[in-house]
Structure formats: C-alpha cells, structure tokens
C-alpha cells in the first residue's frame, strides 16, 4: 500500500495534535498530541495502579497488591543482582523507566490507541538520558580512570590499537542499540498486526484463518511488550554496573 492511502499499516504511528492545530511555546512545537495523550494515560495508569493497589497495606497481599509488589521486586532484584547495593539510589529512576516502557507498550496494544515507544525519538531520548547519566556517574566515581573502560584489564598493551576502538564503538553504540531495539520491536509488531488485520477484511469468510493468526500474534505482542520493557531495564542496570564497578 502506498503511504498516502487511507489504511496504511503505518498510519497508526502518525502523530497528530489533538487540538487540531499546533501549539507553540517559545517557537518550539509543543502540541498535545495523541502520543502525549498515551503518555498521560500511561502515567495515570501506573500511578493509580500502584497507589490504589497498595491502599490496603495488607500484611498478606491481595491480587492487586501482589501485582504492585511483584513490579517493585522485579526491578529491585534486577538492580540488586546487576548493580549491587550502590544501585539503591538509582532505584526510583530504573523503576520509572521499567513501568513507563512496560505500561506504554501494553497501552499501545489496546486497539485504536497509540504506542509512544514505537517512535524512535522517544526511545532515543530515554536511551540518551541513560547513556549520558551512566557516563557522568562513571566519570564522577572513577575520574579519568573511567577511560580504562575502553581497554580490558590484563590484555597485552599492543592490543590497545585494536581493542580501544572496538570498545569505544561498542560503548558509543549503546544508546543506538538500546533505542533501536525497543523502537523496532514495537513498530514491527504493530505493523504485523495491521497487515494481518487487513487480510481478515480482504479474505471475507476465509478471513477467519488470519483472524486466528491475529489472536496468536496479539498474545505474542504482549510477551514482546513485557520482554522489551524488561530488556530495556536490565540493560540500564548493566550499564549502571559498568559505570559503578567498571566491568
């Protein structure tokens, strides 16, 4: 299908201002778009979920409280296992990353809604913040010693010629791989869902076959949504580990 056609599989990613016309602030476009609305819904859902599920403060948690506690403990364990006790002060940030991506992915799977994690600018800003933050933490803790990151401990000196550029490239490609991984997974999943949904209509009665397929893909997309949030968070933890402990 051509990009200009009405039901293109990538139409779902179109960002439109909800007020119909762009809002500018100091010459910059800051329109409240469908993407912003999805973000707002995500923030509200996370907050309401955590606050209301923990309202009972039960000693023996109910279903909702268990869910909230599981979210907390998944991130807490991830951070403890990968970073150790020094990671405690970054817990709120890592937890916010995890919940924001996880709920953003899930809410994006609701038909007709918008997946803000399927936009490279969103995932790249998050990855860039993590990258810059981790690099700042690394230099703050180790000073210029942080440059040893780019040369593995114990390797013969002459290998520096090869190893340093490789390590440097791998370090600098972190924000790219982190952001592209999430972005690509989300885009591909949603495009696939749209394309197969198109077949359901086009095939008429036999559309039941792609419909069944669609059900399976949707379940898979839920898995991918959770998995990508997990991967994004665990990579954040691993980068934090590198910055704090240097390998």
């Amino acid at each position: 299908m051509a990009a200009g056609e009405k039901h293109s599989p990538v139409d779902q990613f179109k960002v439109t201002s909800l007020s119909g016309e762009p809002t500018s602030f100091g010459g910059i476009d800051v329109s409240f778009t469908n993407s912003s609305a999805a973000m707002l819904v995500t923030v509200l859902t996370i907050t309401l979920f955590l606050v209301f599920s923990m309202r009972g403060r039960a000693l023996i948690p109910g279903r909702w409280q268990s869910c909230a506690e599981i979210c907390y403990e998944i991130v807490a364990n991830m951070l403890r296992d990968n970073v150790g006790s020094e990671g405690r002060k970054y817990f709120p940030f890592v937890f916010t990353i995890f919940m924001f991506v996880l709920f953003g992915n899930f809410i994006g799977l609701i038909p007709g809604s918008f997946t803000f994690t399927s936009h490279i600018i969103v995932t790249f800003i998050m990855a860039a913040v993590i990258f810059v933050g981790v690099t700042v933490i690394g230099f703050a803790r180790h000073g210029l010693g942080y440059f040893r990151m780019f040369f593995p401990h114990g390797a013969p000196a002459w290998t520096a010629v090869i190893l340093v550029p490789i390590e440097l490239v791998s370090y600098l490609s972190r924000p790219v791989s982190l952001s592209v991984r999430l972005f690509a997974n989300m885009v591909v999943g949603h495009v696939l869902l749209k394309v197969i949904a198109g077949f359901v209509i086009a095939l008429g009665f036999f559309g039941i076959v792609p419909l069944a397929f669609l059900v399976g893909i949707t379940a898979l997309e839920f898995l991918v949504a959770a998995l990508q949030a997990y991967i994004f968070t665990i990579l954040t933890c691993i980068y934090l580990h590198d910055a704090i402990h240097m390998h």
Partner: peptide
Amino acid sequence: SSQAFWLIVMFVVLYLLM
C-alpha cells in the same frame, strides 16, 4: 519537538510520583 517535550514532562512527573 512535541514528543520530546511531552516525554520529558511526563517522565519527570512519573518519576516524582514514583
């Protein structure tokens, strides 16, 4: 620009709430 702006606003709000 609008996505970046709202991402930062929403993320900071969520961070504070959390």
